[in-house]
Each structure stands twice: as C-alpha cells, then as structure tokens.
Amino acid sequence: TELTISSWVAPSHPTIFAGYETYFPAVEEATKGEVSFKLVSGGALLGGKETLTGLGDGVADGSVLALTYNPAQLPTSQLVAELAMLSGNSLAVAAAVTEFTLLNCQPCITEFSAQNVVYTGSYATAPYALISKGDITSLADIAGKRVRSPGGAWDRWITESGATVVHTSSSEMYEALDKGMIDVAMQPAAALKSHSLWDVANSITLGSFGVYNSGPLLSFNKDAWGELTPENRRVMLDKMALAIVATTEAYLTQNAAAKAEAPEHGVTLVEKPAKLEEEIAAFNGQDISAVIEKAENVYGVKDAKSLIESYTQLLAKWQGITSEVASREELVARMKADIFDKLSETDYGL
C-alpha cells in the first residue's frame, strides 16, 4: 500500500527532514515494502486550516496537524496548548503529550475519531525565547512593548506582563521587527537563523517560556488506517516513538546551532534572568485556574481540572525519565514500552 502523506510546511522543516525521513524508511523496511509513503509537502494538497477535515475526507492518507487551527473540533486535545508554558523540556513534553492523548484522555481519542482521523503522537519544538532589540531581564523590561505572540498561553502571559500582543504571520516577522512594528518576537532561538532575525535583533532572552506542544506528527485517515493489515499497523505504531524523538531532537539541534552562532551576528544571549524566572513561576502557579476557566467557557471542555492534573503528572514523570536515560535509544524504548506497546493493533483507531 502506498500512503499519500500531506504536509503544508516546506521540506526544510524538522517534521519532514528528521521526522518523516526517519519514519518512512523504518516502516518500509520493517513491512518489507508492503507499506510505502508518497509525501506531498508545501501545502500543494492541503493547507494548515483545512488539513483536519481534508484528512478525514480522505484527500490524504496521513498528515501533520496543528491543533490550534481546530479548537472547535478538538477542544480537549488542544487543551495542552494552553499549558505550553509549564515546561521547557522538549522531549519530556513530546512524550507527555503523546501519552496523555493516547492513554489518559478518552475524550481526545473520541474527538479525533469523530473527525475520521487516527492520532498517533505529538512532537514538541525547542523552547521559546524573547528575541528583541534590547536586553530583557524582568517583566519591567517588557511592559509597554509590542510582542509578536504565537498564541494560547503566551497571549495571556504577555498581556499580564503589561505588553501588547501582536499577531502577524511568520512571514511578516522579520519586516515587523526590523521596522519596529513589533519590539519583541516570541520564537525559539532557531528563528534567529531560519528567519534571519539576527540581522534585525541584538538580544535573545532564554527562559522558561515553554515549547509548542500541539503538533501531532503524523495522523492518519481512519479508513486508510483500517485497510492496513494488523501486522503493518503494529509496525507503524512501533516506529512512531523514534520519529517523534528524531523530530524533537532536530528542533533542539537547530536551536543549539543558532544559539552558538548568535554572538557572531551581534546577538547577546541572556540566560534565564533570575527575576524573570520568578515572575514566570508565579504566573504558572496562577495560570492553571485561568486555563481551567478558559477550557470550560471558551472550549466547552468538561472536567478540565482532572485532565490538566493528569497531564501535569505525566509531565513530571517524563521529566524524570528524560533526566535518567542516557541515549536516544533508551528514551525511544521507554516511550515504546510505556505508550505504544499499550495500544492494540487489532483495536486502536478502528
């Protein structure tokens, strides 16, 4: 079977060059070529907003997703986006979101199923940072500034810090920062390089701003999933942990490379200023109640409190595991044992 995979991002994106290019050969080899993949990237098949329904309709057999595009269809699943600032440990977040959604959040799986889509795990990006023209070491430095926000939890933090939230498309970010339309861009350090922000900024503040965690790496059309043999489905579940870790690590590698090169481009690295860290911790403490309220009022999620507790427990668990494991193989094996081995190929997603 050849599965058509759609993605709206360019091939230079970690989900493709690290995630898919690890996953596709691994599955093809393990199924002895019974399952192969045809990737259509760059949005030639489906754009970001239309992907969820298009995938359910069978326009593609599999695709990357961004939950934030579809809050009405996936209210519970995208709850984790509102908790993005809780942890900056990318690998732990990816594993925790994946385990939470697959095993601890029945409403999440029901939501995907209602869209005729099978969820198989999420990646996470590198930690977000504040990229700006002047150093930022406390909330006082950010008050009154215009900050380009990625949305969700970050919107709330920026507003509470007394700054102005600005939403622009990522293509406009460089121009906006250069011309002073925004003062700060909230992005992983990698954006210094990928969006050439180091030409227009001279400071980056690294801190506990969290990671983007709402990207299912590769979800499938339910009918296409059902037509595969159970053995092949088993292989596809088994190889997923590796793809998730590879994608997330690629984000971290890009990030580290950009950070290392930053000083050459005249960008000062401000590492976790103590005052700002305290202020973020205080925000996170209060923020849970705001998330619960937003989940119930805006998204209509029931029992948000216990779901959030379940997620935070898993986050703590995986933070522990990632500090113990010595290699990528160990982490992948642990994710497989704790998460994917618990899914049955004769039952899950059917």
């Binding site: 239309e50 329904t53 298009g54 069978g58």
Partner: peptide
C-alpha cells in the same frame, strides 16, 4: 469519489480565507 469531494469541500473556501 471520496478524495474528490474532500478537495471540493476544503479548497475553495480555504483559498479565499487568506490574510496575505
């Protein structure tokens, strides 16, 4: 048929609903 309807459902509106 299935994929054709899928494309027809999503493409026209999504093409129009575009900030840039």
């Amino acid at each position: 048929e299935r994929a054709t309807w899928g494309v027809l459902r999503s493409v026209p509106h999504a093409f129009a609903a575009h900030w840039s």
